[in-house]
């Protein structure tokens, strides 16, 4: 159940970042969040690079979910 909750949240956040519904997140999608989140462009770029495991410049739902799951389970299991 915990994993299901995590997957739902990851999907929800992915859609927040991928507002156009392309199926991937590009760096400019991440930079667009600058208006909505209290993070600087530099921080958002760091987030993107941290999530972009293969470094191809696009975040897939799998990469996003992997990054989110690390955060999610580190929060729920201190």
């Amino acid at each position: 159940p915990c994993q299901l909750a995590m997957l739902r949240k990851a999907q929800e956040f992915f859609q927040t970042c991928d507002a156009e519904g392309k199926g991937f997140i590009a760096k400019r999608d991440m930079q667009r969040l600058h208006k909505e989140l209290p993070l600087s462009l530099e921080e958002l770029e760091d987030v993107f690079d941290a999530l972009d495991a293969d470094g191809n410049g696009f975040l897939t739902p799998e990469e996003f979910t992997t990054g989110f799951s690390h955060f999610f389970f580190s929060q729920s299991n201190p």
């Binding site: 956040f13 927040t16 989140l37 993070l39 921080e43 760091d46 941290a50 955060f71």
Partner: peptide, 29 residues
Amino acid sequence: DPNMKAGATSEGVLANFFNSLLSKKTGTP
């Protein structure tokens, strides 16, 4: 160890990012 430091930093920015998204969704900072 620079690698460990980089890992900890990216963990920090990710935590910050996801917490911001959570706050945005729930409306509670």
